[in-house]
Design a protein around this nucleic acid. Structure first.
Length: 494
RNA sequence: GCCGCCAUGGCGCAGUGGUAGCGCAGGGGCCUUUUAAGCCCAGGGUCGCAGGUUCGAAUCCUGCUGGCGGCACCA
């Protein structure tokens, strides 16, 4: 349009200008660079499969669409590689073909352009399934170039910040996210198949309960009140047990205002399920079914980590006191009244973290520092001290509660317990928590009177389980960082 | 929050005190079965930002920004 000579040089500004110039020229010649409909009748993969076996033979006529990521003009013939969600297909325009003008038109496309193509499937001398074009439509002109053709995006910051560029340039990188989707569907399928009802509970909460974590705070203008982003799903799902829904689950985002790491994103996906009249055994069964189903789904959708073969249920179970006892060579139960001695042997065994005074918290602290990181094969760790489980029902041994965690590769994957449905004890425990909050611990939620009131109306005995979806995906696909399992991980704004 | 490492054309990289280079991509040209296509030509970078040391800094020092990793907190 400008009539200026094309800009030489390869600076970004010049590349952008050149591409805009092409779009303007196309518009001027009656081609709409955007805004054209096109309905493919085959995917690239399907089309490639329909190519005739013999070189030069003509096969079916198809319409396909995709993004140009390879372009090889060669005088009287032009080749292009287009990619759609199923894979790659080579397009071919030849001076001897049905539409010789397309040799030049295809050759003038840019890498990154999205095109629709019609033609006849054939096979080239090298045996490549190809579509010999009779029609070519530009569906979306790319004004910015894709990243390196052979190298893709390597820079971690670019990959996370501009994930679409990573995924469009290197379509293989989409696989992990397809696997993630398969895992989430599988989890839903397992729960739906057992009669669980999927529900949605508030993300904006006046009291962020159900766990211990610093919440994100926000403000509602017309209510004139502060609200918090939820840190867990538990308290609302239990209200639904009170309400009479006997099996409920939610899979959704929760938010914790804490540090970032390869294992921690400020928002992450948590699945929680509650089953009235369920118990620890039914939760173990459900947990095994969910994990095994998820592993199978991930494996069907792409390559999985070698360790996935260890995920075949049943998983062994070991009590925390057994584990700690085996690690320290002393019996934590017989030292229950003398926590100083237990702490001393933990120090001897190499514990360097802070060791609390009460026996239950002490046992848990030793377990977390010295034992949990060493558990590699999936294991149900049982018998958690009541002090560290404010929402779980006590065992017959009142020092412990009916709780387990599924631990694999040194990390917690799932956490389940028989839910505490005694409103009197629940009130007492939450009041104890509220006192800790007043002593200055911002991670402890304030007292939630409405939740206790709900329990006072009567909650059936129930089993409940929570499962970290991001970490399950990491484990299944072997991702070293949670940022590789989350499409758009939290980064500092540019 | 603390500590360490990293930051060079659009992308991937080289350059450890003497004035910045390679591949791909982009521009011009040749090429009728290529597929990391090939060949010829001409371009493109205030070396993350700001200071400092030095005759001279991409290179050494300080601060800042961003990323990654570790610690703390946690799932």
């Amino acid at each position: 349009m400008t009539g200026e000579p094309p800009a030489a040089g390869g600076s970004l500004a010049q590349i952008l200008e050149e591409r805009r110039r092409k779009a303007v020229l196309l518009s001027a010649s009656g081609v709409r660079p955007w805004g054209v409909d096109f309905t493919p009748d085959h995917s690239c993969r399907e089309a490639a499969g329909l190519a005739p076996p013999d070189v030069g033979a003509k096969g079916a006529e198809v319409a396909v669409a995709g993004r140009i990521l390879g372009l090889r003009p060669s005088g009287g013939i032009t080749f292009a590689d287009i990619f759609d969600a199923t894979g790659r297909l080579q397009l071919l325009a030849s001076a001897d073909g049905p539409n010789p003008a397309l040799v030049q038109r295809l050759g003038e496309m840019d890498l990154g352009d999205i095109v629709g193509a019609r033609g006849v499937l054939t096979r080239t001398r090298r045996g490549e399934p190809s579509l010999e074009l009779s029609e070519l439509s530009l569906l979306a002109k790319a004004l910015r170039p894709p990243a390196g053709k052979h190298t893709g995006v390597v820079d971690t910051e670019l990959r996370y910040r501009r994930r679409y560029l990573d995924l469009l340039t290197t379509p293989e990188h989409q696989v992990v996210f397809r696997q993630r989707s398969a895992v989430v569907s599988s989890l839903r399928r397992t729960l739906d198949g057992r009669g669980f009802l999927e529900v949605e509970t508030p993300i904006l909460q006046p009291i962020p309960g159900g766990g211990e974590a610093r919440p994100f705070k926000t403000h509602h203008n017309s209510l004139g009140t502060d609200l918090y982003l939820r840190i867990a799903l538990e308290l609302y799902l239990k209200r639904l047990l009170v309400a009479g829904f006997e099996r409920v689950y939610e899979v959704g985002r929760v938010f914790r205002n804490e540090g970032l790491s390869p294992r921690h994103n400020p928002e992450f996906t948590l699945l929680e399920a509650y089953q009235a009249y369920g118990n620890l055994a039914s939760m173990m069964d459900l947990c095994e079914a969910m994990v095994a189903g998820a592993a199978a789904a991930a494996a069907e959708a792409g390559p999985v980590a070698d360790s996935v073969r260890d995920l075949a249920p049943p998983f062994p179970r070991q009590s925390m006191t057994e584990l700690v006892g085996a690690r320290l060579g002393v019996d934590p139960l017989s030292l229950w009244a003398r926590p100083g001695e237990l702490a001393a042997s933990a120090r001897e065994a190499g514990a360097t973290g802070s060791l609390p005074d009460t026996p239950g918290e002490l046992l848990f602290a030793i377990y977390e520092e010295l034992v949990e990181p060493t558990i590699w094969a999936p294991t149900f760790v049982t018998d958690y001290p009541v002090e560290v489980s404010p929402l779980a029902r006590r065992s017959l041994d009142p020092r412990f509660c009916e709780r387990f965690e599924l631990v694999a590769q040194g990390r917690e994957l799932a956490n389940a317990f028989s839910e505490l449905n005694d409103p009197v004890e629940q009130r007492r425990r939450l009041e104890d928590q509220a006192r800790r909050r007043e002593l200055g611990n911002p991670e402890v939620p304030p007292f939630d009177e409405d939740f206790v009131a709900a329990l006072e109306h009567g909650m059936p005995p129930a089993g409940g389980i929570g499962l970290g979806v991001d970490r399950l995906v990491m484990l299944l696909v072997g991702a070293p960082s949670i940022r590789d399992a989350v499409l758009f991980p939290t980064l500092r704004p540019e």
